[in-house]
């Protein structure tokens, strides 16, 4: 018996066996959906007066503390800015933006900050359009942008992220 015949027979046997019992999983999707936990929702608190007072004091202290801390906190990457692309990758030694935006040249990103965020600012005069891109982590590892709204498949079935510019309202960049 040839090697590939044996491998084929293993596969066929398992396929047949699964098919023979497939009535067991006929309604599996319904059972799974019923058993799914809810995604952790935000904590719901009914504020009482003492709590409101405590919150207000905390807010004032935080506000004053913000001045005291100075620029250290505000120097973090401005990831909410649509002109900034960010990637959280704490263990990376280097991260570059690579894509149509850079003519597929590696553009090193700033970072990481203390939360492991890498970031890069897009040019202010970016022409409207669709731009494919991704991040090259540690020189060889291709990583997509989890914040992108569109993706396309590319070489080796890897994924390019797509930046639609200008972003429509409510979209991440």
């Amino acid at each position: 018996m040839h090697e590939h015949e044996l491998e084929q027979l293993i596969k066929e046997t398992i396929v047949q066996r699964a098919q023979a019992h497939q009535d067991r999983i006929a309604d599996l999707e319904y059972r799974v959906v019923d058993a799914l936990p809810d995604r952790p929702a935000a904590l719901e608190l009914r504020p009482t007066w003492p709590m409101r007072l405590a919150l207000a004091t905390a807010a004032i202290l935080l506000f004053l503390g913000g001045f005291w801390l100075g620029g250290t906190l505000s120097d973090g990457p401005p990831c909410a800015d649509p002109y900034v692309l960010c990637l959280v990758y704490p263990n990376a030694k280097s991260v570059s933006l690579v894509g149509q935006l850079t003519h597929w040249e590696r553009q090193p990103m700033h970072g990481p900050d203390r939360h492991g965020i890498w970031w890069i600012r897009l040019p202010r005069d970016l022409e409207p359009g669709r731009y494919e891109y991704g991040f090259m982590v540690d020189e060889y590892h291709w990583v997509h942008d989890p914040r992108a709204r569109e993706f396309v498949h590319t070489f080796d079935n890897k994924i390019n992220s797509v930046l639609i510019w200008p972003p429509s309202q409510g979209d991440a960049p």
Partner: peptide, 8 residues
Amino acid sequence: LEGLAKGV
């Protein structure tokens, strides 16, 4: 260019 950049 994309393929070359990714080392394909």
